[in-house]
Amino acid sequence: MDTTEKMKTENLNAWFGPKQALKEITLSIKANVVTAIIGPSGCGKSTFIRTLNRMHELVPEARISGQVLLDGQNIYADEVDPVQIRRRVGMVFQKPNPFPTMSIYDNVAAGLKLAGAKKGQALDEIVQKSLQQATLWDEVKDDLRKPGTSISGGQQQRLCIARALAVNPEVILMDEPCSALDPIATAKIETLIRQLAENYTVVIVTHNMQQAARVSDFTAFFYLGKLIEYGETNALFENPKSELTEKYITGKFG
């Protein structure tokens, strides 16, 4: 697969207080593909993607060392505003978290409105386009004024994806986006993830290996805060180089 590099971590370490969650992670994330991060609970996979848009540092006493590059620029450099990074690197969370006081429309428009955008046709179009990209438009187009929390869990998660897309990010991070959803809603999100990779760089954390195999082009296996193995998904699942990876993907532990 011939793709360019979108993000890269170099000797990335992350801590929560005295506890080290990531150890010397050097990983290159390719543009316009889906990269899956797999590994057992507590291996640092969520921490890892939260370092990619500077959400990690919001936790009290959390810190990092090393570099995270976005298009070659270190996002942890002193002059970099984390707010700007988060606009370029969006995020979808484990549990659907639409804003409870906002309508479906306002949820999608929230990122732009919080950045100062005014109401109007331009905003309407972005909202429609984002909901269409998130394959939710047909289900909610007559209910845009209803509360964002009034739709089903799977729809709420696609609403959260639409909300992330509306600010036109370059990278979308997904932290176990299907773990709170039923199989049908999960299938919809997985199809959506494949579609998103045409225009966006997607990094998805999942504890579900079948999901990683289904949706991703590249897979990274984390264990105890270390990157054990990284490569094209097919190769990693069919022919793992590390014994640890093999044990994990064959279900011997995890």
């Binding site: 988060r86 606009r87 969006g90 978290n97 639409p98 804003f99 919080l114 909300r163």
Partner: peptide, 15 residues
């Protein structure tokens, strides 16, 4: 107020 709501907003690049 759930922390996930704050995170959702910050992750959208809101101050």
């Amino acid at each position: 107020v759930l922390n996930s709501i704050r995170e959702a907003s910050l992750a959208l690049g809101a101050h």
